[in-house]
Amino acid sequence: MKAAKKIGQQTIAFANPPVISGASSIVGPKEGKGPLGKQFDTVLPDTLYGEQTWEKAERKMLRETCQTAIKKAGLTIHDIDFMMAGDLLNQIISANFTARDLGIPFLGLYGACSTMFEGISIGSMLIDGGFANYVLTAASSHYDTAERQYRFPTEMGVQRAPTAQWTVTGAGAVVIGTQGSGPAVTHVTVGKVIDLGISDVNDMGSAMAPAAADTIIRHFRDTGRSPADYDLIFTGDLAGIGRALTEQLAKKAGYDLSKNYTDCGILIYDPSQDTHAGGSGCGCSAVVFTGFLLKEIMAGRFRRVLGVGTGALLSTTSSFQGETIPGIGHAVAIDAYNPGG
């Protein structure tokens, strides 16, 4: 028997599209100086945010953005049925410790930089499935915590490759509910893990682009839609090089993304900020979506968008052992108004 809400091979079409009823974003000082700086709810004065360690600062960002998102949805913590969150640190400590502080039933996620969209996907399924009234989903990253875990100590004198991306210091959260007047999640295309043999850890965009393209192509096949059906298509954080590759891969499959496709990793920084290829990290797509794109949708500038969260699913162990970098992309289709509500 065919699942009632599944269409095509990988896509879910919601019967009663869940509504994004509240969202919040918080970023570090560098992101605050970027082109979207004024859009975010909070810009930190420094990367420690009054804490003793960067890890604690990341947690504090995540906790505060969750609390603000709940408040903006006009709810209290007790109204939230489930919380889903993730980050880049080992054993997703930022998310776990935030969940400890908030006391909401919690499901930890790891999707690397795709975490925010993985959360929105599962959260929407929980809502439309009738398992919850309100779900909170969040993600965070921090340049200094990521850098010391994945690369070199921050004070080590190293030159960055031109393809390297800059981990965004920031956290974003959304509250998804059964009803309301906010933007509605109509479709979710769950991505496959794709690996086309890229092993250069300084070039995540190239590693993730095939996964992003695969999910985008699959979304169009499953839904029968085309790029023209969307006012905007954006990927999580492929940055400059990955974006160009995704566009080329989609074109090969017969989909022209050249008119309405951008990437969160490109939007968040100005080229003068010396971030090389652009932004990355769970926080990148989380803050660009919650801080900027969602507001544009609510202001009516975009009627329908397709967001694709992309993640590079490697670890330091796997890359030291010479493994290639698997990537993933999850697509979420959002309508500006809720057809059911």
């Binding site: 794709i194 043999g197 590759l245």
Partner: peptide
Amino acid sequence: MLLKGKKAIPSDRKQQESEYREMVN
């Protein structure tokens, strides 16, 4: 054609990988 999963079709995959590497370069 959709991109194949890692272990889907080995011979096809090698070619796909080298094609992609060229594209990246």
